[in-house]
Amino acid sequence: MFDLPTANIGGPDLFVLEFGDIVAYFSPYTAALFVFALIFTVLVIVSRPERQVDIAFGGDAYYTKVVDPDLLRFQRFMAIACGLATLGAVVTGDVFNFTLFASMVGITNIGIVAAYRNRHVLNAAFQYGIVAMLATVPLFGGAAIVLAGTGTLSMWELFGGAMAVPLIAKAFLVLGVMGEGMAPFYIAKAEITRAQGAPFILMVHVSSLLLFLRVTEIVISM
């Protein structure tokens, strides 16, 4: 029932995991992305943040910033949630579920960054939040057009080549994922890296890169 077409660019499916009507699958490609997301989620769970060193202008002095334990807990929670959403997005076999996980990644990314109380970082989080929220329109719009055009959201059906997915749906999906964090909408990220908590901030990048890799596979396969 869940056999991917042999010409599938992510490789043949190795294992299918069913949760009722929600089905995740592992091909060599999605399994590789899953393992990578898992490694960084584990790193988020076990790592403590770095202590940032700042150099004082006009002298040789430097100082290390203090790590706030409350902030640490919240950032870690959001980063783990982001990791779980990413794990879901890279293995799901349903376009709508993919868009759901992608938007959850966008929300948790805002949470990771907005936890840090610094004017520049909060400004960046605000801008990032606006772009991420706007991007949900083409993201879900893309999934809606796929459903309207083909009558299904199942990747097994869509990857078979028997159904013509409208080009606009593919473009919307890519645009939506790009808005959740990829170039050229990542302008705010350079400011985001001012925030403390390297393992958690890194999850922002990990999730958006993995989402982009997954949407590339989906769009080429459909």
């Binding site: 490789g11 060599p28 490609y29 590789a32 960084f40 890799l213």
Partner: peptide, 15 residues
């Protein structure tokens, strides 16, 4: 294997 996976590795190097 797939060059898509190779592309993935290249992107992951950014991480």
């Amino acid at each position: 294997g797939s060059i898509l996976l190779l592309f993935a590795v290249y992107l992951l190097h950014k991480i």
